[in-house]
Design a protein around this nucleic acid. Structure first.
Length: 372
RNA sequence: GCGGAAUUGGUGAAGUGGUUAACACGCCGGAUUGUGGCUCCGGUAUGCAUGGGUUCGAUCCCCAUAUUUCGCC
């Protein structure tokens, strides 16, 4: 089935919305945070561990699975869910972000994008059609349109041309997308320019997608510019479709996104930070390698309900991280993902109580207080 | 006992008679937002075994002492 968004409630004082997503694998509440599992795994974690954190949709990546192990292998395994044993919804990114992170500007043409493989350096070519074809074979629940994630800063003229091309690519992708069991999302580009964001939304809506995402944020633009980019998109997006802010996962940014009407988020931050020894806490981000935790036999975050905080101390996790033991990154990943999922749970409650601005104020007061 | 060699930060080590004593690891911090990368970026020896001497100037030359090490008896 196609994904179906149901709007349950609008918050009284902001654009925040409380909703439900009907998917092939059950019904999930929004706002929601989606952990990232680029290579058909959320780094270091098993599906069961993710379920325990109350994880819903997770992300995987077209470009990476295309290179390894190859979409045909995944298809022969019975699709991505069977291949990786994840029995909840999976969204696949189109490879559009890799246009940003791996390709050179000159590699982008109307037809598609030439990549230099990060695995062996060989020349690769990805197009909207190819991306959709791969995602079809992967059999994810949600496929993303192939876009160009535009860097910042970019000139108005470049953003305009690129955004128009992204719209044409979205149309081409939609034309070859036949999988009735897979939803297809459009991606709003347009950089920092309201007229281009608006134009992009309108054109994508004309084509018609099962959901809409906001792309091209957190590419170095600064908080205020990013928040404007979000507003410029949600302002014009249809109310009856889910809105997905791509790649955003800083706790403060999630709150700001929700307040601007975003429903779902994904981000590598919780798992990457974890592997690098950082943990989110109510009182700000901490670096577990800091000397002050050497003999700190308390949990990462007092009152946290995650497996890590129930069972391990900062001193122990610090020891694991400084010794390069993989368990350290695992334990911190569990905590960080649970932290963001719990944040969305609390935001849902705040929307129901029409108290999201109060929630935000209280959260910021603690998060920026920086006393552990 | 005799002879040779060595002695530089927490560690392994480069190096020079004259501005700031390489580099690596460790340690101490920081970064990280649709994940190529257990990655990246900073900081970290006011001193070159100790005591004398030569010199305008010594970590670098000379002497002594200590320690380590290798030969030989």
């Amino acid at each position: 089935m196609k994904i179906k968004y149901e709007l349950l409630k609008k918050e009284a004082n902001t654009l925040a919305r409380r909703g439900k997503l009907n998917t092939n694998y059950g019904v999930y509440d929004t706002p929601m945070f989606m952990p990232v599992g680029t290579l058909a795994n959320v780094k270091t974690l098993t599906p069961e561990e993710l379920y325990e954190m109350n994880s819903g949709i997770i992300l995987s990546n077209t470009y990476h699975l295309w290179l390894r192990p190859g979409e045909d292998i995944v298809a022969r395994a019975g699709g991505l869910h069977k291949f990786m044993n994840y029995n909840r919804p999976i969204l696949t990114d189109s490879g559009g972000f890799q246009v940003f992170s791996l390709a050179q500007p000159k590699d982008i043409t109307e037809e598609g994008v030439t990549f230099k493989s990060h695995v062996d350096g060989s020349k690769l070519f990805l197009s909207p059609e190819k991306s959709i074809e791969i995602q079809n074979k992967l059999d994810s629940d949600i496929a993303m349109s192939f876009d160009e994630c535009i860097g910042y800063p970019s000139t108005y003229e470049y953003v305009k041309q690129s955004t128009e091309r992204t719209i044409r690519w979205a149309k081409r992708g939609k034309a070859v997308h036949k999988n009735e069991n897979q939803s297809l999302f459009g991606i709003v580009q347009g950089g920092e320019y309201e007229d281009l964001r608006k134009y992009c939304v309108e054109e994508l809506v004309k084509i018609g997608f099962d959901g809409y995402s906001i792309g091209g944020t957190s590419v170095g633009e600064g908080k205020e510019v990013m928040y404007n980019m979000i507003s410029y998109a949600t302002k014009y997006l249809p109310k009856d479709k889910v809105r997905y802010l791509m790649g955003v996962g800083d706790p403060l940014d999630i709150i700001e996104g929700v307040i601007r009407g975003v429903d779902i988020f994904d981000c590598v931050l919780p798992t990457r930070l974890a592997r690098h020894g950082n943990a989110f806490t109510k009182y700000g981000k901490i670096n577990i390698r800091n000397q002050k935790y050497k003999e700190d036999f308390t949990s990462i975050e007092l009152g946290c309900d995650c497996y890590t905080c129930q069972n391990y101390t900062k001193a122990y996790i610090r020891h694991l991280i400084t010794s390069n033991e993989v368990l350290g990154g695992r334990l911190l990943s569990i905590h960080n993902i649970r932290f963001l999922i719990r944040l969305t749970e609390e935001l849902r409650k705040a929307i129901e109580n029409d108290s999201i601005l109060e929630y935000k104020e209280e959260f910021i007061k603690n998060y920026l207080s920086n006393n552990k």
